[in-house]
Amino acid sequence: MSSHPTDFQGSVIDALREAIERQIPDSRAAVNGGGGHFSIEVTSPAFAGKSMLESQRMVYGAIAHLMKGEMAPVHAVDSLKTRTPIAPA
């Protein structure tokens, strides 16, 4: 895994999860990774009826502040999955 310098303090995984869950309604985010590379899986009813492009845009919008600039804590999102929860029977 490559490493990328960052001036970010604290857990990037927590920061990603909190940013997503705060900004996307009723979402749950699972974040894995390190060294600037992360995999993210988000489940939210807000994705219902949206295209993959629109759904991914919502997630990127929520974490944009963590991806900006040369010293950003998030260098790359290796995998981003958005899911709509299965409706309860």
Partner: peptide
């Protein structure tokens, strides 16, 4: 594109998406 990662695909002037989306 208001899209934070590379690659980015455009077809007919319209933004299509990144790698995941193109694959799907």
């Amino acid at each position: 594109s208001e899209w934070p990662t590379i690659p980015q695909l455009y077809v007919d002037g319209k933004f299509i998406g990144g790698c995941d989306i193109v694959r799907e």
